[in-house]
Structures are given as C-alpha cells and as structure tokens.
Nucleic acid binder design. Sequence first.
DNA 1: TCCTATCAATAACC
DNA 2: GGTTATTGATAGGA
Lengths: 173, 173
Amino acid sequence: MVRPRGTTSTGRHRIEMSLRPDKNSRQVTFSKRRAGLFKKCSELALLCGARVAVVVFSEAGNAFALGSPSMEAVLRRFDDGNDAGALVPAADVDDREALEELYRAREATAEQVASEIKRMNTIGDTVVKAQMGRRYWWEADVEALGEAELPEFARALDRLRANVRRHANKLRS
Amino acid sequence: MVRPRGTTSTGRHRIEMSLRPDKNSRQVTFSKRRAGLFKKCSELALLCGARVAVVVFSEAGNAFALGSPSMEAVLRRFDDGNDAGALVPAADVDDREALEELYRAREATAEQVASEIKRMNTIGDTVVKAQMGRRYWWEADVEALGEAELPEFARALDRLRANVRRHANKLRS
DNA sequence: TCCTATCAATAACC
DNA sequence: GGTTATTGATAGGA
C-alpha cells in the first residue's frame, strides 16, 4: 500500500488526515462527514427518543439543516404511500418497538427516503444560498453566550429570524 | 459470549439494540451518543472549516447545545492560559496546519476543556430546564416546512425566540 | 466510570 | 458515486 507523505496509515475520521488536502478532497470530506453527522442525529432521535436540530454551513457558505421530527414526517409520508396499515404511526414515538419497526422500514427503502431528505436539505440551502455576507448568526455570539447567557441567546435568535425573513421576502419578490 | 434475547451480536450504534432497554441503559445510551455526536460536530467544524450548531433535547427534557465557534473560543481561552506563543490563534481558521495543531493541543488537554464544554452545555440546559410544556419549536413545523418553506421556517424561529425570551425574563425576575 | 468486543464511519483510491 | 482498509464509536458488562 502506497502512502503519500502527510497522510495516516488509513482512511477514516482521523484528525491528522492529509496535511494539505486540496479543495476538492476537502469538499468530499465535508459531504461525507455531514452525511454521517445527520445519520447520527437520526439515530439519536430514533433510538433515544431525543429531539435534535442541526444546522451546518460549509466553508463555501452552503447550508444544510436537519430536525428530528422531520425525519418522523418522512417516515410517516413513506408509510402512507406504501403500507399504511402495517406500520405504527410515527406519532406514537414512545413505543420502542414501533420505532424500530419504522427504522427498519426506512432502512429497507433508504432510496425512497433519500429524495425527501434531499428536498429538506434544499430548504436549508435556500435560506442562505444568496449569501448573507458570510457572517452567520452564531459566528460572533456563542462565546458571548457564556457571559450574557440567555439574553444574548435571544438576541442571536433575533438576528437569525431577521435574516431568514429577509431572505424569504427576497425570494418571494 | 452470552447474548440476551433481543440484542444484536455486538454493541455499538446498531439500530436494533435491545428491544426493551430499561430507562437506565437508555439514558446511558443517550449520553454516549450525544457525546459522540458533539465530537462529530467538532470534527466537522475543525477539519472542514464548517460552522455547526446543534441542539439536543433528551427524552426527559434536558437540553444540550453546541456551536462550532464556541469550540474555537474554548481553544483560544486554553491557549491564552497556557502557552500563548506556541499555538496559532484560533481566529485564523483557514490554515489547515494551525487547526491540526490546535486540535492536538485540545486532545492533549481534554480534561481542561471539559469544564468549559460542560459550562456551555449548562447554558443550553438553562434555556429549557424549567420546561416549556414539553413542546418545542421544531416539534410541529418541520413537516410543514416542506410545504410552506421559508415563511414557515421564519415563524418557527419566532416561536423559538418567544420561548427563549419568556424564559430569560422568567429566570431574571 | 472503565473495559472490551464488534461493527460502522470514512480517507484514499477508482 | 462506489470500493476497501482501518480505526473510532459504542452496547454491554464489570
């Protein structure tokens, strides 16, 4: 096995990956890691009954978002379109066995769900795609959050809301 | 190896884990998975130059939050308190080698950073700890997001802001 | 909490 | 976008 200088003995999420990854491989890494992260979120939500929301901005400024109930929505939609009776409605999220049933169903038809997920991600894209000047709501305030705590957090959300609304209007006009 | 009924042949994040995990093991699982998720977020941010924000609510309603710039803040604070000259300031996030240096430094002193992270998580806790009635902002709207798209997203953010502000006031009074 | 066996996430390559 | 080698994430148990 040939091993270029500056790489570790193997692949995977090792911190010291290539010392000078070109832009391309960095994008590939980002895409794969983001996919992995979203999967982890889904797992956490489904297996542990947790609520998860994530927002990720790539270096280029593209945005991707995922929320845990949205995944349930995807499952429900899939169930309705295929075999509505066989599977427990996603609303009953307290039953472990039901969740597992749903997850298996989803796994079995990952392809069918993929387009839904992609569509949802696209929504996140749309929010920022037109670039807000490369400064996003959490870019300056998370450190301050430690000192100002809740008021600052509320202000950050104000900024996010304003940005989203501005873009919503821009896109509609 | 003994394998109880209803479990897979192994551990790890297999989807079909125990069919009836008791409350305790479920909490353990949640904690472990959340830790793993946050680590993944840090890696995505550090390795790919991405911005990441996550919020996780456990089934019990406890909240945990992490933002990628906050991690840089932690690193910067650590750097200042230890060997300010040796490490590149966290602000220069574009230099891959600098990031790696920072990450290694952080790994070497994970304990020191842990308390900072814990403090930041506590902020997330505070936001919801007093319970908003167990219904959170993304609980109902993410599915609608697919149809209403941006306007609905903006409305969801409004609700979140209102909740946060309400609790900020409640906690301050 | 720590340990360990097992498998899944993923860096490199195609 | 698919394959593969390697290790990191983690379910279960002490």
